[in-house]
Computed example of a mutant assay.
Amino acid sequence: MKNVAEFTLIGRIGKITAGESVTRLSIASNYRRKGKDGAWADDTHWNQVVVFSEGARKYIADHVAQGDLVMARGRVRQSSYDKDGETRYGVDLVCTDFGLLAAKQPATDEDEETA
C-alpha cells in the first residue's frame, strides 16, 4: 500500500516568483469562521507552493497572473536547513498538478460604485 502526504489548494494567486529552476506561488485560500459576535467572516490563509516542472513553470509564466483562480495539487515534503549554526525546519508544498480555473475579472464601474 502506498503512503501519501498530499495537498489540494483552490485559491487566488497573490505573487509569482520565477527563479532559474523553480517557480514559487503564493496562493490565498479563504475559510469561513464564526466570530465571537456570531457573524461569519472570511479567514484568508496564504499558502506558499513550489513548482519544479518545466512545463508547468512555462504555462504559469505564459498564462497565469495575480488574482487568477487556480488549483494546485501535489505532495507535502518536510525540509531542514542550517542558519547561523541552528537547524531550521519547514514544510514545502511541491506542486505536481496545476490548473488555471478562471482569470481574474477586471473591475467594472458598477463594482467601483459599490466599494
Rank of each mutant, 00 (worst) to 15 (best):
E113H: 14
Y89I: 09
D111V: 05
L101N: 02
Q78C: 07
F52N: 12
D62R: 15
A41Y: 12
D109Q: 14
S21P: 03
V94R: 14
V64F: 13
V76K: 04
A56S: 10
A28S: 13
L100N: 04
D68F: 02
A39W: 05
T44Y: 06
Q105L: 11
V49H: 01
N47L: 03
F7V: 00
G38T: 04
V50G: 05
T108E: 10
E110W: 10
W46G: 00
R57V: 05
H63G: 08
I13T: 03
T114F: 14
V94F: 12
G38L: 05
L69N: 02
T8Y: 11
D42V: 06
Y81P: 04
I60W: 03
D109V: 15
K15C: 04
V91F: 08
N30S: 12
D109F: 13
V4T: 11
H45S: 11
G74W: 01
R24Y: 02
Q66D: 12
A72R: 01
E6N: 11
D43I: 07
E113C: 08
R12N: 15
Y81L: 04
W46K: 01
A41F: 12
Y31D: 11
Y31C: 08
Q66M: 15
T114Y: 14
P106Q: 10
A103E: 09
A39P: 06
A102E: 07
V4H: 09
Q48G: 06
E113I: 14
H63L: 12
Q105Y: 04
F98A: 00
G74H: 02
R73K: 13
D43L: 10
K15V: 06
H45W: 05
A107M: 14
E54A: 14
I27A: 02
M1E: 08
I60F: 04
G35S: 04
E113P: 09
Y59N: 09
T44V: 15
S80W: 02
R88N: 13
E110I: 11
T108Q: 13
D42L: 08
K2G: 06
D37I: 05
G67T: 01
R77N: 04
K2V: 12
T108L: 10
R33T: 06
R77P: 00
I16H: 01
A18T: 03
S26H: 06
G35F: 02
K83A: 13
R73I: 05
G67Y: 00
V4S: 13
S80L: 03
G67M: 02
G11W: 00
I16A: 01
K34C: 06
Y81H: 07
D62F: 10
A39N: 14
T114W: 13
Q78P: 07
A102C: 03
D111Q: 13
T87F: 08
G14C: 08
Y89N: 09
F52P: 09
E110P: 06
R88S: 09
A61I: 07
A102L: 04
Q78G: 15
N47S: 14
G85Y: 05
G74T: 02
R12P: 06
E112M: 15
A28R: 06
I16C: 02
V94W: 09
Y59I: 07
M1P: 06
L25T: 01
V4D: 07
V91T: 15
Q66L: 13
D62K: 15
E110H: 10
L25R: 00
S79A: 04
P106Y: 11
M1T: 08
T96S: 15
